[in-house]
Design a protein around this nucleic acid. Structure first.
Length: 773
DNA sequence: CGTCTCCAAGTTTTT
DNA sequence: CTTGGAGACG
């Protein structure tokens, strides 16, 4: 019965046996953290703690699912059932649904994904008449997101002169106004974005003591995995919930904190011991996963970081192979090397394809690897990137489903109100939006009352709007009696979305139709699954699943063994026998965006640490000397992280020092004491018109010339040599005769009678006219 | 209002 | 190289 304890080392066992009070488990990479968490929960239950009273927060839903399954093998399936396990977002979304009315939200509120949020902010910026170059929607969203993650509400923002000053200083004085409007619009739409799921939970717990008391009483034992990657908002939730019983167990590794860009605060784990003075600390330092070469190499790199907790990861495993370092000429060759190496290891060493993983810093790097693997006929599975549910055809259908659940969902409505085209254009939508803002109603509500308010919409369009509304209302009624799969099927049929695509016949359209089919199958699977588990199989539940799904969650285990490709961020918590870390180049890894401050660079280093410690037996580090970026070939320098690994652990497949680079004459160090804040100047951009002209006419404009001083007469630039009576040829309109000229210089126009296209006035500077007679 | 074409911008990382 | 947005045209 207690035999699971025997499989643990002393430190692990102590952590499992510690039942009450605050505790922190500092778990080095590969130290059996999941196993400790699993057994600790199982052990709590064995000691009589009701599974109903345990809350366990994990980093991905997949981790939760797996852990639950493992616990079930110890305590039994029915016992494990009541455990609350999941990501912060999914657990608190569930709680918010049952308490939503207190916050003025419908219980079936929509969860906006990033795309929805960006679109909403874009339209707000447009409506406010702001310049979208100055107010870049993505950046504004990022700023709002960081406010929310720090629990800075709109009101708090306007009470905080420092924040407002910072935005003034950045020449974006309207950030607060956008923030306010964004929050209002989400509220009106009955929608929460990802950050709201945490922020609103905090609001709920802060404003309603009885609710707080209820959940405090329920969650008597709380566990938080990957604690190093929690943000302030999450931190406060956990503190509040654990305040009554104080049975809080956090697990993490400060060396693996890699999510600061989304608000993760490494101080949460560094300060835990201060937050709870009577904390018990457990350190899991023995690594069971990797060879000692890998462990020691990783240690030698992470040692360069200053901010960290005191711990020492070690292993009793064999030294194993050295870490291989490979330099290639190009990213294409890098891909081919990886594919070749995987193929050889697969054939010669009897390795399964699932033993291999390729890790990269950015999603875009996957392409070169994919191409190479495909050529070698090696099966691979790529995680992340643009997820299935983000594809246009899928999102459109999901938008219909979202509208059925919550007709106020503004972003979903805007996507589908005119898709497929039903004659409701941008002008109409603008009018509706203005009215909706004015009356503080949703667009759907406005359509309901379209006859009662004068919006200067003509009667034809009005009836189109009403037809649309009636279709939605009919579908809503159907949705009451049908399950999620059936209603999705009806939606697909009624809207004729597939028909349009099928008619199209292009390969893209065919694949879209397949995707829609796959979506339907997915819904079916979801329902069957949920019903089997006796869980919520509603459409709301499905949509929530989709919104909060990570790529791993949808992972189907019936796939054949294949090589895994993913970003390093996604590899957290995973392990593979053979790991290839590619693109070890300056400005790529570490990323060019993350080299400005020491803390950013330390995070990149932790990222590298995470990558390397995924490997059990063999690791390859590769870098290319040139790489395609935005379709352009760029030179690269090897990453500093290669330098930082102690040489004794490395094996250079290619010689360490490459051929001298083009920059060998420049001593880089002379720039190193340049004062901070001074950036190297960007190349001066020519004025847009000049560039366009240059492109069109294929003229190379010397950089130091502001204006075109000389123009070849053949080019017909500006006035060229066109006179009335000339026969000219236009790219699109064909041949014609010049019947008149007007204006001067760049404004000079020619009136031309075309043979087929009729009479036109064209600006000579833009019309590509060829004089042919 | 819909469609087509051309252009600009973007790639860190994700719930 | 890819994607979304803007603008021209019908």
């Amino acid at each position: 019965m207690d035999n699971y304890l025997n499989s643990l080392n002393e430190a692990q066992k102590q952590a499992v046996l510690q039942k009450d009070g605050p505790m922190i488990i500092i778990a080095g990479a590969g130290s059996g953290k999941t196993r400790v968490l699993t057994y600790r929960i199982a052990h709590l239950m064995k000691q009589g703690v009701d599974s109903f009273n345990i809350l366990s927060l994990t980093f991905t839903n997949k981790a939760a699912k797996e852990m639950k399954a493992r616990i079930a093998t110890v305590v039994g399936v029915s016992e494990a059932k009541n455990l609350w396990m999941g990501t912060f977002h999914s657990v608190f979304a569930r709680i918010l649904r049952s308490e939503a009315d207190k916050l003025g939200f419908p219980s079936n509120f929509t969860i906006y994904d990033t795309q929805d949020s960006v679109r909403l902010i874009t339209s707000i910026i447009k409506e406010m008449g702001l310049d979208k170059e100055r107010y870049k929607p993505k950046q504004i969203l990022g700023r709002i997101s960081s406010f929310k993650n720090s629990l800075i509400t709109v009101r708090a923002y306007f009470n905080n002169s420092d924040l407002q000053e910072a935005d003034m200083h950045a020449s974006r004085p309207k950030v607060g106004d956008i923030y306010k409007e964004y929050v209002d619009r989400c509220f009106k739409a009955g929608a929460m974005d990802f950050d709201d799921l945490l922020l609103r939970t905090n609001e709920l717990l802060a404003r309603f003591p009885d609710v707080l008391a209820k959940y405090q009483d329920r969650f008597r034992y709380i566990m938080v995995d990957e604690y190093q990657d929690t943000n302030h908002s999450q931190y406060i939730i956990v503190r509040a919930l654990a305040d009554k019983f104080g049975n809080i167990c956090v697990v993490g590794d400060d060396s693996q904190s890699i999510y600061s860009f989304r608000g993760a605060n490494i101080q949460n784990i560094l300060n835990f011991q201060k937050d709870y003075p009577d904390v018990k600390t457990f350190k899991l330092e023995q690594n069971y996963r990797s060879t000692s070469n890998i462990v020691n190499a990783a240690n030698s790199v992470i040692a360069k970081n200053k901010t960290k907790l005191d711990k020492e990861v070690w292993t009793s495993n064999d030294a194993g192979d050295s870490i291989n370092v490979m330099r290639t000429i190009s990213d294409g060759e890098e891909g081919r090397f990886v594919a070749q190496s995987i193929w050889e290891n697969h054939m010669n060493n009897q390795m399964q394809l699932s033993d291999f993983c390729v890790l990269y810093r950015t999603n875009s790097q996957s392409r070169a690897i994919e191409d190479a693997l495909r050529k070698k006929n090696l099966d691979y599975k790529i995680y992340g990137g643009i997820s299935f549910y983000q594809r246009k055809e899928i999102k459109d259908i999901l938008s219909y489903l979202r509208i059925l659940i919550n007709p106020n969902d503004e972003e979903a409505l805007k996507r589908i109100i005119n898709y497929p085209a039903r004659g409701i254009g941008a002008t109409t939508i603008d009018k509706l939006t203005i009215a909706a803002n004015h009356y503080k109603k949703s667009i759907f509500e406005i359509i309901k009352y379209i006859d009662k308010i004068d919006l200067k919409i003509n009667s034809g369009t009005k009836s189109k709007l009403q037809n649309f509304m009636n279709m939605i209302l009919r579908l809503q009624i159907e949705a009451k009696t049908k399950n999620a799969f059936e209603i999705a099927e009806v939606v697909v049929k009624q809207t004729q979305l597939i028909k349009d695509l099928e008619k199209d016949g292009t390969p893209e359209a065919v694949s879209k139709v397949e995707n829609v089919q796959e979506l339907l199958n997915g819904i079916k699977d979801f329902i069957t699954d949920k019903i089997e588990q006796g869980e919520d199989a509603s459409l709301t539940s499905f949509l929530e699943d989709v919104a909060l799904a990570t790529d791993f969650d949808s992972d189907k285990n019936n796939d054949k063994p294949s090589v895994s490709l993913m970003t390093i961020h996604q590899s957290k918590g995973l392990e593979y026998s053979h790991v290839y870390i590619v693109g070890l180049e300056e400005n790529l890894f570490p990323s060019a965006m993350s080299m400005n401050t020491r803390s950013e660079l330390e995070e990149e280093r932790r990222l590298f640490y995470v990558a390397l410690t995924r490997a059990e037996k063999v690791a390859y580090l590769t870098y290319a000397q040139t790489r395609y970026r935005w379709g352009k070939l760029v030179d690269s320098e090897p990453s500093r992280f290669l330098e930082e690994i102690d040489d004794q652990f490395l094996h250079y497949i290619t010689p360490k020092v490459p051929e001298p680079s083009v920059n060998r004459f420049i001593d880089k160090s002379i720039f190193e004491d340049a004062p901070k804040g001074i950036r190297f100047q960007k190349p001066i951009q020519r004025k847009k018109m000049e560039r366009d002209l240059a492109k069109k006419k294929e003229i190379i404009i010397p950089k130091n010339l502001k204006k075109v001083s000389q123009v070849s007469p053949k080019m017909n630039l500006f006035d060229g040599n066109i006179t009335v009576g000339n026969i000219v040829e236009h790219n699109r309109f064909g041949k014609g005769k010049v019947v008149g000229l007007e204006g001067k210089g760049p404004d000079k126009k020619a009136e031309i009678q075309f043979a087929t296209a009729g009479k036109k006035k064209l600006l000579l500077q833009f019309a590509k006219l060829k004089v042919i007679g």
